[in-house]
């Protein structure tokens, strides 16, 4: 695969959230508003990029048997860095994402890419893979958050949208709304693919 393909596959075809269904907890928990979704997407992409580069550079010296603990420590280091950066530069985002920033450590997308891609490929390919997967994760979060914020608060990025803000369905920004919007979005993606195959 070329570098471009490594970058683009994460956007839609191998989208980590919708297709591989990894990293669902943050996707559902912080997607109640677009600001949170973008913040989470950037934080996860940063961690993914950092861990993919380091794992890929170290792939020949890491003993196979203890690779998972090593990957987790590398990931946890980058999570701590981004946690402190967000807390310093955007305290309000840090407050609204709460424990979901430290929980990026156990986001399976990141460990999954370290294990299945970066530990087998060179740094250049791994950077592209990280950017693509990070973008795909962010795109998925934005899609979920778009519907939840619009229907649940009648707003987009905090700006009121006429018609929708007259009587918003509060449940959409709570936990049940996350599950339902996500379920319907995967169904939509499958439906579109089934139609594409039939043609």
């Amino acid at each position: 695969m070329t570098l471009m393909q490594h970058l683009l596959k994460g956007f839609w075809k191998e989208n980590p959230i919708f297709v591989i269904a990894l990293g669902l907890c943050p996707a559902l928990a912080v997607s109640s508003s677009l600001v949170n979704a973008v913040g989470m997407g950037i934080a996860a992409t940063f961690v993914l990029l950092g861990s993919n580069i380091i794992v890929s550079l170290m792939r020949k010296i890491v003993p196979k048997k203890i690779r998972i603990p090593i990957f987790i420590v590398i990931i946890a280091t980058f999570v701590t860095i981004i946690d402190k950066l967000i807390a310093a530069f955007s305290p309000s985002l840090s407050a609204s994402l709460g424990i979901f920033i430290p929980l990026i450590v156990v986001n399976c997308v990141i460990l999954g890419r370290a294990e299945s891609f970066a530990s087998k490929n060179g740094p250049m390919d791994s950077i592209m893979d990280a950017l693509g997967m990070g973008a795909g994760f962010t795109i998925a979060l934005i899609m979920i958050a778009f519907f939840r914020e619009l229907l649940g608060e009648g707003k987009l990025f905090g700006y009121a949208i006429p018609f929708f803000n007259s009587d918003p369905a509060l449940i959409m920004i709570m936990a049940p709304g996350g599950f339902i919007v996500f379920g319907l979005l995967i169904a939509l993606k499958r439906h579109m693919e089934a139609k594409g195959d039939a043609r």
Binding site: P176, F179, I180, F182, G183, I186, A187, A194
Partner: peptide, 20 residues
């Protein structure tokens, strides 16, 4: 199109509503 994961998530959503 709803088989498998999608219907499971929608069901979880309804269950979460009940827990509210």
């Amino acid at each position: 199109a709803m088989k498998g994961a999608p219907i499971t998530f929608v069901t979880a959503g309804l269950l979460a509503t009940a827990f509210m």
